[in-house]
């Protein structure tokens, strides 16, 4: 139901005013997108080349410094970009108090997944 509230149309449109921000999010989403292009293509190409590999071949591949570096770079950029993109999706469709919680949980999940992925990659690369 529509709330009954006496307010001028301009007052309603102005709302809480401009946040005077938004550029940072928009710009970082673009920068991480551009930064993802190369690691993503490298990753896709690696999958094509190594999808049938056994455990030792895969370990040897990931232990090469260039591949370790690219994998860590991919994980950082991927989850950074995902967090920014999913934020927009949540803000677009969730209009209740659940929005704030969804945003917090989503960001936490992205951080946690990036951390687990990076640690796993480094363990394979640097471990015995």
């Amino acid at each position: 139901m529509r709330r009954f509230r006496i307010q001028t149309p301009l007052g309603r449109a102005v709302g809480l005013g401009s946040a005077k921000s938004g550029f940072g999010h928009w710009w970082t989403e673009r920068i991480t997108a551009a930064a993802l292009v190369l690691p993503a293509i490298w990753f896709a190409a690696s999958l094509i080349a190594h999808s049938g590999s056994d455990y030792d071949t895969f370990r040897r591949w990931l232990r090469e410094p260039i591949n370790t570096a690219l994998m860590v770079l991919l994980l950082v950029t991927l989850f950074w970009h995902a967090a920014l993109g999913l934020q927009v999706v949540i803000e677009d469709y969730v209009h209740s108090v659940a929005k704030i919680w969804a945003l917090i949980v989503m960001r936490f999940a992205c951080f946690a997944l990036a951390a687990v992925g990076i640690i796993a990659a480094l363990r394979i690369a640097l471990g015995a």
Partner: peptide
Amino acid sequence: VVLVIWLAAAA
């Protein structure tokens, strides 16, 4: 998420 599970499994 699958990628992370894959890396964790490999580790």
